[in-house]
Design a protein around this nucleic acid. Structure first.
Lengths: 232, 232
DNA sequence: CGCAGCCTTGACAAATGTCAACAAACGTGG
DNA sequence: CCACGTTTGTTGACATTTGTCAAGGCTGCG
């Protein structure tokens, strides 16, 4: 594995506190691979042979059933995905595909489980990471069950605005058809939802969003820290 | 803490492999309490001072936003809840209320985190439990995003039928208004959904469900192990 | 008995999805 | 740099799904 990726991975919360020898041992069986855009890295139902670490690029986690498909999450560097499947030695529940040219480190799942037994700090980090993932999905579940699509979009825009620095003009982080899928609606519905937010001062030009009056949108969206805050 | 509850808790996957002294230490600060039905045990947003273990009875985990409420899960003995909040020392994301007279063991969260550091087997068990919880929510998320309410009900009935032993007649495990909330719909919609399944051989009398032709319903529901199987 | 809560039903409204058409944006190869 | 085709986004018309409100029935319990 190249030194650059090695150092980046080492800095991840998941690995930062590991003993040197355990981390080195874990990396011995690992390798880094480059993928072009739109490559399916893993397929739901397959056995979880590797823990994946996204070093650069972007990855979409999605699921299908009965001919339908929905986007569950987007992974950005540097972070791991499908940790739960690795830990449980169970089949992937989601598929993953690259959204752009990406570098991915692959760590054999059995090595991860072995390192977990050897290294208390690593075990602790895994627990924290899993708890974090769990809480994220719960928030997303609340978003889906308690809000209409218009409310979900409004809150998404507020989150994205904050994430982009808080300015009144910012860019969407991915294409609208996928945003629609993430928010649990069709692209057509998303188009109309953007129009539905015009009365609250939201204007759209391509991927560029302008929020004229933050507080006006907030009054409509009613963001909640137990759904919309990424920490806590 | 009474010996009976002590032994039951000890048998939980989460605690079964712990060293005796660590388990005893953990239980020293714990206590068991009896609650009548319809008591709110925890409120979302509160700090997670205790890990809860349901010893007997039943508990509903639910969330609210903007005057709306939705049921996220039902806890049956013997199992823990809000483990993730305890681990992360973060506020509860869900509220919990008893559905019937219940016995709950309360273990101080800081003791749990301390025991985690001391006992590798306990740490492993927590990871497994969290991974399990995570995967359950993901399955539920897929159910919500990929299926219509009629399909969700059909698959729920198949799961419940299997859970009840597989016979063609079985009982719903909770009242319909809460089932509706779990499935992400209104009680009125659930009523109509039951009628919508009549063509597939489903009949309802109170909480008693009859599935005349299992395969007929299955053809409609298209159950999938990556959504509907509780293991894997 | 009478009340309260749950369930069901009907009529209606709102939200969301589908299909088709077209416009806009993008990438590729000339 | 342009021409072309492909993909994505938008819009309208419409269908379906889901929610809302109101009324009435059923059940369980004091």
């Amino acid at each position: 594995m190249p030194d650059s990726a090695y150092g980046d991975i080492r800095k991840l919360d998941l690995f930062a506190q590991m003993a040197d020898e355990n981390f080195t041992g874990l990396m011995r069986g690992a390798y880094v691979q480059n993928f072009p855009s739109q490559i399916e890295l893993i397929t739901e139902g397959d056995p979880s042979d590797f823990l994946h670490v996204l070093v650069s690029g972007a990855v979409d986690l999605f699921s299908t059933w009965n001919g339908r498909e929905t986007s569950m999450a987007t992974i950005r560097p540097i972070s791991t995905f499908i940790l739960a499947a690795t830990v449980k030695d169970a089949p992937y529940l989601m598929s993953a595909r690259t959204l752009e040219k990406s570098r991915v480190a692959l760590i054999p799942s059995q090595d991860v489980r072995a390192a977990f037994d050897l290294d208390g700090n690593f075990a602790r980090a895994i627990v924290t990471e899993l708890a974090q993932c769990y809480r994220s999905v719960i928030k997303s579940q609340k978003d889906l069950k308690l809000r209409t699509s218009l409310e979900r979009l409004a809150n998404y825009l507020l989150r994205q605005q904050r994430h982009a620095g808080g300015g009144s003009v910012f860019e969407l982080e991915f294409e609208k058809r996928r945003l629609a899928s993430v928010l649990g609606m069709t692209p057509e519905n998303l188009s109309r939802a953007f129009k539905g937010l015009q009365p609250y001062g939201v204007t759209v030009a391509g991927t560029r969003i302008t929020i004229e009056d933050h507080n006006e949108l907030k009054r409509f969206a009613k963001p909640n820290r137990l759904i919309d805050d990424h920490q806590s």
